[in-house]
Amino acid sequence: MSYILTTNNITKKFKTKLAVDNVSIHVERGEVYGLIGRNGAGKTTLLKMIANLSVPTSGTYDIVGKDGETKAQMMPKVGVLIEDPGVFQNMSAFENLKAKALAYGVHDDKYLNELLEFVGLSGVGKKSVKNFSLGMRQRLGIAIAMVNSPELLLLDEPINGLDPQGIAEVRNLIHKLCIERHISIIISSHILEELSKVANHYGIIHNGKLLDELSNDELISRCKSHLVMKTSDPEKTKALLNSMGISDYSFEIDHFVIRERVEEAGAISVALAKEDVQTLEMRKEGQSLEEYYFRLTGGNGNA
């Protein structure tokens, strides 16, 4: 397996607060890695350390290029959009791109114009960034992060504060970056529904600790589905389930939750009918990323 980024027990302590606690993440080349956690969980601090904006208290991280480039060689190939886009407000979108391009030795104005077109800002002309909408700024931030043709892109809460259309635009942009440009992306968010639409690998961070790291396939298998069943005679139903060898179930208030042999819903229903037990309700349910996250962190409400 080819990892573009690995962190090795990376830790960040601010005076008495442990913001990131021995976190080891593994990001495969070409994937979108979703970093999940509440506000203040340590996502931004972790990304800042990877972006060399913050010095780790202990631990290390390594970035390896596709041709075996070392961390020092790879650092100019990391694009960053952490929190708000870092832009000079009085400059135009092009001038902001130009400033970063000069820093990285990119002297191709045509490429910069292509980037503006790529993020849908080709028509803004000389308009100052201070007059941009939040969505436009966010897209400009992504364009700036792209100037140095990065192999690894760090996006911290890129959809924060955006309207639904803006969210969809950024989501499409991330898909394009991954598919068309084969860029590995780490994207942090507390909006899990959106994150699940773009990421194919997840790291769940809570109170500075990495609780779990899993791929999309692993998530599907872990978020296994279950049957919710309401019958006319719970006692007879219990006896029937036991006689069928089904043991992983529970009775909650007025319904059963069956967690094994979910695919045999029809057979259970037929067996109940034979025992003169009416099936009042039967449905299959599955856990979402959000439910899995809450189960793992023991929380509820918004992540």
């Binding site: 060399n52 904006l53 961390k71 650092m75 100019p76 870092g86 832009v87 407000q89 970063k100 820093a103």
Partner: peptide, 16 residues
């Protein structure tokens, strides 16, 4: 200026 505007985030990571 580049700190207060946040532009520094775009370039500060380029060197180890």
């Amino acid at each position: 200026c580049d700190f207060s505007r946040g532009f520094v985030k775009n370039t500060y990571g380029m060197f180890e």
